[in-house]
Amino acid sequence: MSAVYKHVLDAVDIETFLICEDEDEGKGLIIKMLEDMGFNDINVVFIEHNGPGARIRARGYVHKSGDKYGWLNTRRDG
């Protein structure tokens, strides 16, 4: 993962509209998208499918409580 992610306080949220058949397809697509961006800890915070596709908000956690936070510039950064 790029060093720039050290600056993320906790998580990156991606909000978009995906053209898809149903919620399941939308979830699969957004998870794949975040995986391709290099995230490991991925959650779908919100999804609502209607008509052409899904309004979706997905989250990739960079720093969780108890981690070593990159933004602190610790020697053992995470």
Partner: peptide, 13 residues
């Protein structure tokens, strides 16, 4: 705004 999301911690934003 993510208080109802139970899948992970609240995000600062």
């Amino acid at each position: 705004s993510d208080e109802a999301f139970s899948g992970g911690p609240i995000a600062g934003a």
